[in-house]
Design a protein around this nucleic acid. Structure first.
Length: 612
DNA sequence: GCCGTTTTCGGCCCGACTGTTTTCAGTCG
């Protein structure tokens, strides 16, 4: 049981695929398979769980999702209740092909059907074997060249690691972006796609370049040393596989099409489709080259995104919000004007320069790499005004967690440092050889907060008592063990923590590590409800392998009036840069500056805590 | 199969690249 949205979407997508394979030229079937595919995409982008929706509201809940009608809703219901869809079984009894073909890019249902009709295959292994044995080249419509290309595509499928955490590839992606921007004649070069939308993980890296010499840019791109294989190229586009296994696409357009191309290539796909539908309804046509007036046959916009959105009756939408989750409705100029008298999300979204403090920072007193003083120095250098020192507590043995005496000792030291920081020469010794810019002038007003990342035990209690915690400026708590308890127990551990009057923030609430572990199960709406009642802050841990809370959870939290903190979880000064990824997730969750507690100056932030 | 400010029928986003199709189907994003 417990069907994820991804599993449901995959089933619908495979139904679409099988319908496409078995389609008799009739147009009706053609649109039927598209309907299944559209429903699958919709579900993939949904912020709520279909199963939860079904359990709380029944089939009516499913029908409330656009693109899901009676027929598809009843199949989802069947899948949730019986773990099967008879319609799918029936299709598969006619075409017994493994669902993995969905992930084999470049070979679609039509190609596969032509092969299937002549050679018995069931899965990708069979297909590879048939190609190696030369059984495909003689099928009508195929050739030796096509057979070779099938083998290449299978190799690509096997090589491809699914998705990379955004922070892991960030420097590499930016390096190529800089390289492209330095090609002679290039006016602009930018990384677009899910990277620009700040998705937590990235599959493909897409670049957009504005230049009047596309051939030169394309040749330079496909000949970079980072390129392992050229998958295709034409007069405006190129597709390559990079050495790290990722696919990368390049689109080159003239300056006057830059905005249209940026809009098209940033996505997401459904956002783009909806914009093109709006264009169509206004007798306009939108593509990657511009916005055109159909009746007059002339281009009316294209150089900037803003002018295109404006001509469609919309305010500009930040890339992080372009996920087809209601942002188009929100940006309609009429809606916008009403809201904008006070509270429009789009104009108030938390910005990349808005954080004033960082509420989770570690030092070499436990598992961090540097001292409090060094972490402070670099934080000031980074432009922050305060940090909380949140070393682990005693029951987390692996990090040499602090006991009560050590914790109080550290708090005393921090208190002294706060006094000394105001004197002119205090950091002189430390600064020697470490100064990178002149932000140290901010140091005098810098505030160090005593804190801890208190360990939540299996029964939901903490490993440090409240009378000790109350001596700290701010308290964070987190789960680091017993991940496999059932959802009710895990939720109760976090709810009990939120109910604890000494705990201000719950750190990385779901415990996920991207590509390594899913995290423990948590009833997020329930936790959010208690957090709201108790004024507990939920963290967005910005370390790129965590990004926890994730975007959809952030949206649930702030929609319910819960404040978030965006923290780096830095164990080294260079890790303050992680804050960028946390802010990206917060923007994806539509968080405004007001929703983020550490966008406040230190005293206001403290005043807004539970006991503040 | 889904949808509706042209609402229960008749539409359904748009264009680049590939292969071998001399005018297009398949696939992708």
């Amino acid at each position: 049981m417990n069907k994820t949205n991804a599993e449901i979407a995959r089933m619908l997508r495979m139904i679409s695929y099988l319908l496409d394979m078995s389609e008799t030229k009739s147009k009706k079937t053609n649109f039927k398979n598209r309907a299944y595919n559209t429903a699958a995409e919709k579900i993939d982008n949904l912020s709520i769980s279909m199963e939860d929706l079904y359990k709380s509201e029944g089939i009516k809940g499913l029908l409330s999702i656009p693109s899901i009608g009676k027929a598809i809703a009843s199949k989802i219901e069947e899948f949730i209740n019986t773990n099967e869809i008879q319609y799918y079984n029936q299709l598969r009894s006619e075409l017994p092909l493994d669902i993995e073909f969905l992930e084999l890019k470049g070979i679609g249902p039509k190609t596969l059907k032509s092969i299937y009709d002549k050679v018995v295959i069931k899965n990708i292994e069979d297909l590879e074997k048939a190609a190696i044995e030369g059984k495909i080249r003689d099928i009508p419509g195929f050739s030796q060249k096509k057979e070779e290309s099938i083998l290449k595509k299978i190799k690509n499928y096997k090589d491809c690691r699914n998705r990379f955490p955004i922070g892991e590839i960030y420097p590499f992606v930016k390096q190529i972006e800089r390289y492209l921007s330095e090609i002679k004649g290039v006016k602009k070069a930018i990384t677009v796609g899910s990277f620009l939308r700040m998705k937590d993980t990235i599959r493909d890296i897409d670049y957009l370049v504005a230049s009047n010499d596309p051939q030169k840019v394309i040749e330079t791109f496909v000949n970079m040393s980072e390129v392992k294989q050229v998958l295709g190229k034409g007069s405006s586009k190129a597709f390559v596989k990079l050495n790290n296994g990722m696919n990368s696409d390049l689109l080159v357009v003239p300056d006057e099409s830059y905005g249209a191309a940026l809009l098209y290539f940033t996505g997401n796909k459904q956002h783009g489709i909806n914009l093109r539908k709006i264009a169509s309804s206004k007798n306009l046509k939108l593509n990657e080259w511009g916005l055109y007036d159909k009746s007059k046959g002339i281009k009316i916009a294209g150089e900037t995104e803003e002018e295109i959105y404006a001509k469609l009756g919309l305010e500009w939408i930040p890339p992080e919000m372009r996920e087809n989750k209601g942002e188009i409705e929100l940006s309609k100029t009429e809606t916008y004007k009403i809201y904008n008298s006070g509270e429009n999300k789009i104009s108030q979204l938390i910005g990349y320069e808005d954080l004033k403090g960082d509420l989770q920072v570690h030092t070499n007193n436990t598992d961090g790499k540097m001292s409090i003083e060094q972490m402070v120095l670099y934080a000031a250098d980074f432009g922050l005004e305060y940090i909380a020192i949140t070393d682990h507590t005693k029951s987390l043995k692996i990090a040499r967690g602090l006991d009560e005496a050590q914790l109080l000792n550290q708090a005393n030291k921090i208190s002294q440092l706060n006094d000394n920081i105001k004197t002119d020469n205090f950091f002189t010794d430390l600064i020697k050889g470490e100064v990178r810019n002149n932000n140290y002038k901010n140091l005098k007003n810098f505030r160090i907060l005593s804190s801890a990342e208190v360990n939540i035990l299996k029964d939901g209690s903490l490993d440090i008592s409240n009378n000790i915690l109350d001596k700290l400026d701010i308290v964070g708590a987190a789960i680091h063990s017993s991940f496999s308890l059932p959802i009710e127990t895990q939720t109760k551990r976090l709810v009990d923590t939120a109910l604890n009057p000494s705990v201000d923030i719950i750190f990385h609430p779901t415990g996920r590590i991207i590509n390594k572990r899913d995290g423990y199960p948590v009833n997020i709406p329930k936790l959010v409800e208690v957090a709201k009642d108790t004024k507990t802050i939920l963290e967005v841990d910005a370390a790129y392998e965590r990004l926890d809370l994730k975007d959809d959870h952030i949206k649930i939290a702030i929609d319910n009036g819960v404040k978030i903190a965006i923290d780096s979880d830095a164990h080294h000064p260079l890790q303050y840069v992680f804050l960028k990824f946390g802010i990206g997730q917060a923007r994806r969750g539509w968080a405004t500056k007001k929703d983020v507690i550490n966008a406040l100056p230190v005293q206001e932030m403290l005043n807004n805590l539970k006991q503040g």
